[in-house]
């Protein structure tokens, strides 16, 4: 089953924040959602999950809540951990759509939690108190929580913000491993270099509209970078794919 959205429009109050966006994601894809602040990336993802009222149609939002939670995992941008609970219990929350209670995990659930913690490189932290971790460690624990859900689809909102370079790359590689297993990932990113390098496809948003959708080298053109982000970048297409380094603000036209 694929992720299909048609003409998704979201109004917050009377302001349209997402305007008629259509998007299809097939299994095996890592789709990077890029765009300046306020472009509507988070709102689009929340709407497609059915967390916001919207017009249009979306395959995820039409599912009943529990089946949706077994189909798609959501990693929000604000890394909230309200109580000082152990890391392992926090990650086990990802098993609740599968009928688990974090107080009593089956062997399969415990195995899924272990796999997720290992993928996020947080297994060594399993007995620590989640609220006492550093910001980057919390981000990885919450990633593990989403991975433990073991869903065919993962939606992540700026999951690598605030991570060190190694863990930024490791996280992007986890998404690629997920895709290699036939799952799909939709990830909002601000790091265009990593987006170009690790996403199989990019979707560019500006002021609520989708303005480009395709291979990284076709989306991150000099024209789009100047028009949408207002920057000039050094870009070179190599055998490994597009390399991109933002350089300076674009001249105002």
């Amino acid at each position: 089953m694929a992720f299909v959205c048609r003409d998704v429009t979201v109004n917050l109050g009377s302001t349209p924040v997402v305007k008629s966006v259509s998007l299809t994601i097939a299994p095996g894809e890592v789709v990077g959602l890029i765009g300046p602040n306020g472009a509507g990336k988070t709102t689009l993802m929340r709407a497609t999950l059915g967390l916001l009222p919207f017009s249009g149609s979306c395959s995820l939002a039409e599912m009943p809540a529990t089946s949706r939670a077994r189909y798609a995992a959501w990693l929000p941008q604000d890394r909230e951990i309200a109580w000082p609970i152990p890391v392992e219990a926090l990650v086990a929350l990802g098993r609740t759509p599968h009928g688990a209670s974090i107080s009593r995990l089956t062997r399969q659930d415990a195995e899924a939690v272990r796999r997720a913690l290992e993928k996020a490189d947080m297994w060594a932290f399993r007995d620590r108190i989640a609220t006492q971790l550093s910001g980057g460690e919390k981000a990885r624990v919450l990633l593990a929580r989403a991975l433990a859900q073991e869903t065919p689809m993962l939606l992540a909102d700026e999951p690598i913000a605030g991570l060190d370079p190694a863990h930024q790359i490791a996280t992007m590689e986890v998404f690629n491993t997920q895709a290699a297993d036939g799952r799909s990932v939709l990830v909002a990113l601000h790091d265009l270099g990593l987006a170009a390098r690790f996403c199989s496809r990019l979707v560019l948003m500006q002021a609520g509209r989708k303005v480009a959708d395709g291979r990284p080298e076709d989306v991150l053109t000099a024209h789009n970078l100047a028009e949408v982000f207002g920057i000039d970048a050094y870009r070179v297409e190599t055998a490994d794919g597009l390399l991109l380094q933002p350089l300076k603000l674009a001249a105002k036209t």
């Binding site: 929340r46 999950l49 967390l51 809540a65 529990t66 949706r68 939670a69 077994r70 798609a72 995992a73 959501w74 990693l75 929000p76 604000d78 909230e80 951990i81 309200a82 109580w83 609970i85 926090l90 929350l93 990802g94 609740t96 759509p97 209670s101 974090i102 919450l142 929580r145 859900q149």
Partner: peptide, 14 residues
């Protein structure tokens, strides 16, 4: 328990 992750994440957990 799920609300430990915030309302948004809890809702996405079903």
């Amino acid at each position: 328990d799920s609300l430990t992750l915030g309302e948004d994440a809890a809702e996405a957990l079903g």
